[in-house]
């Protein structure tokens, strides 16, 4: 019961995140969307690990690793976005710029 809730929440987060990653031109929003997708996946992963009732340690270990990886990716992405904003004054990719 509980697990299904976790899994469904995870799936919803993934859906939201994928939408944001594809549809939002603002780069910072995309970084957040990426984090949202990641969180959804980790939630689902945790639920999957507990599926038989016994606690499985492996997903927990992997989720922590995954969070660290996602964090460093976000840090790099945000750094690039900031650098781009500084040098071009915009926070969107050149060919996706809505205001020409």
């Amino acid at each position: 019961m509980n697990l299904t809730v976790f899994a469904l929440t995870g799936a919803a987060l993934v859906g939201l995140g994928v939408y944001g990653l594809l549809a939002l031109p603002h780069l910072l929003r995309r970084v957040i969307a990426f984090n949202l997708t990641g969180s959804g996946l980790f939630l689902f992963f945790g639920a999957a690990g507990a599926r038989v009732g016994v606690l499985d340690a492996i997903p927990q270990a992997l989720i922590i690793t995954g969070i660290v990886v996602a964090l460093s990716a976000s840090a790099l992405a945000v750094g690039l976005v900031v650098a781009l904003a500084r040098s071009s004054g915009k926070v969107v990719l050149p060919d996706e710029d809505p205001s020409p």
């Binding site: 994928v18 990653l21 995309r30 990426f34 990716a73 790099l76 690039l80 781009l84 071009s88 990719l93």
Partner: peptide
């Protein structure tokens, strides 16, 4: 700016791929 934009485009694909 050009390199940063190219890097960010790459990053979006790479992150989507990772996910």
């Amino acid at each position: 700016a050009q390199a940063l934009a190219a890097a960010l485009r790459y990053m979006i694909f790479a992150l989507a791929g990772s996910l």
